[in-house]
Design a protein around this nucleic acid. Structure first.
Length: 410
RNA sequence: GAGGCCGUAGCUCAAUUGGUAGAGCGCCAGAUUGUGGAUCUGGUGGUUGUGGGUUCAAGUCCCAUCGACCUCCCCA
């Protein structure tokens, strides 16, 4: 026998879970569409060279393999790089190109809480404009999504990659060590001043320089880029308490060139819920011409976990409205007809698919599935040309003509 | 990539120094031949994740492997 299990970091979503995921995803997407974004889908597999050299150190986490035609291919690692490929490949797309994308990505990580090898990312990006209006709209959308999902307290951290580099260089960090130093400073809150100094020294940065770096980050002020985004958000009437300049925010991906974002929900510890930023040089790697671009990505599983923890997930077990029971073999036709009529009216209707089951069993089934109504159609109802409609949560039941059932269930 | 901890019935867990596996819930049937979530009675429950090894004897010890969880790393 084959052992029924999924590979490490890969998951099943049973109907009750899948249903919640779909509902939440639809909410997020509705926000994107409200802001004028349209969907895009790209293949799960890209040529390996499309993905390589874009993510920096994390590149080793790409699922890469040789296909049967000896091609080097790789599983989608994020949705930003495929988007960049698409923009370069279809130059006729009107700019600014605003698209959202909700597909799985794969990363060969060691699974942990809120971390999987296959997970859904929810991206939205604007390509073709370097305006600060874009930079602020991205932040605005992150906020709108989190609000739409019901989060009361969250923070959207803002920083700028050029600012990071400037602070490093003006503190005297050797140019070759800047990237490493940025990685270290990102952990300031987590490992403290001494921890960061220790780590920087380990990277070959002199202690005095490391101290200077920390000092300069502690005194850092928003640069013009960040400031104008904050100003625009304020002008748009946003509640500025959710937007925070965070000079130590770094972000791992190598392709960011400007403003960067990260969103965290208060009380949720398993990492940030959304991250993104401006990447003006990435698309140029595919097209020869640079296209300015900016966008962000929600980690769908983390969003769900945070919602779960805060009791924001809807309790839905099924979309089925009514179970039409089957009283006996000779009344099957009656039940089928009723079900047919309900379905024709757009009511989600399930017929019990066994003609020998006792009513008790059929009602138990409806109960277990969370179907709110049951229709019982016995000889008595057949005689009177009515139907017995039972509300399973209140136990109320009434004999009504089918037309009335329809009005009661819609 | 490094380290830790764990895997026993569908689910949650028990099993003394190694002595051949047990409970609750669930499920099925009945009490209740037209009515569910309650109660009672009876029944079903296992190659102890998988493969090796040590031993008279392995759920228990050793090795490998698969998987879950947790640190670190990094990230969504």
């Amino acid at each position: 026998m084959i052992i029924p299990q999924t590979p490490k970091g890969f998951r099943d979503f049973l109907p009750s879970t899948s249903l919640k995921r779909k509902l939440v995803l639809a909410k997020i997407v509705s926000v994107f569409e409200r802001f004028g974004f349209d969907p895009l889908e790209t293949p799960a597999i890209e040529f390996a060279e499309t993905l390589k050299g874009k993510y920096g150190e994390d590149e080793k986490l790409i699922f890469e393999f040789t296909d049967r035609g000896d091609r080097q291919v790789a599983l989608r690692y994020d949705q930003t790089v495929p988007l960049s490929r698409v923009v370069a490949q279809y130059p006729e797309l009107p700019k600014p190109f605003k698209r959202y994308q909700t597909q799985n990505v794969w990363r060969a990580e060691n699974p942990q809480k809120g971390r999987f090898r296959e997970f859904l990312q929810v991206d939205f990006d604007v390509v073709g404009s370097s305006s600060t209006l874009v930079d602020s709209e991205i932040a605005q959308i992150i906020s709108a999504v989190l609000k739409e999902l019901g989060f009361k307290k969250f923070r959207i951290l803002l920083n700028s990659r050029p600012l990071l580099n400037d602070l490093m260089k003006s503190s005297g960090v050797d140019e070759n060590l800047v990237t490493g130093a940025i990685t270290s400073i990102d952990k300031l809150k987590k490992i403290g001043i001494d921890g960061v100094i220790q780590e920087m020294v380990g990277r070959g940065i002199p202690t005095e320089v490391a101290k200077k770096v920390i000092e300069s980050f502690q005194n850092a002020k928003p640069n013009q880029e960040v400031q104008s985004v904050l100003d625009t958000l304020k002008d748009s009437g946003e509640d500025m308490s959710s937007f925070v300049f965070e000079p130590t925010l770094a972000r791992g991906l190598a392709y960011y060139t400007g403003i960067i974002y990260e969103a965290e929900v208060e009380g949720f510890s398993a990492g940030s819920v959304c991250g993104g930023g401006r990447y003006d040089k990435l698309i140029g790697q595919f097209s020869g011409t640079d296209y300015p671009a900016n966008g962000a990505s929600f980690g769908f599983d983390r969003v769900l976990e945070a919602m779960e923890e805060q009791g924001l997930l809807p309790e839905v077990k099924t979309t089925t409205k009514v179970l039409v029971t089957i009283f006996s073999k000779d009344l099957v036709q009656n039940s089928l007809k009723v079900a047919q009529e309900l379905k024709a009216q757009g009511i989600n209707t399930e017929v019990y698919l066994d003609t020998d089951a006792k009513l008790e069993k059929q009602l138990k089934y409806a109960d277990a599935k969370g179907i709110p109504f049951a229709i019982i159609l016995g000889p008595e109802e057949a005689e009177k040309a009515v139907v017995n409609l039972k509300n399973l949560s209140t136990k109320e039941q009434t004999q009504v003509p089918i037309s009335e059932v329809i009005t009661k269930l819609t």
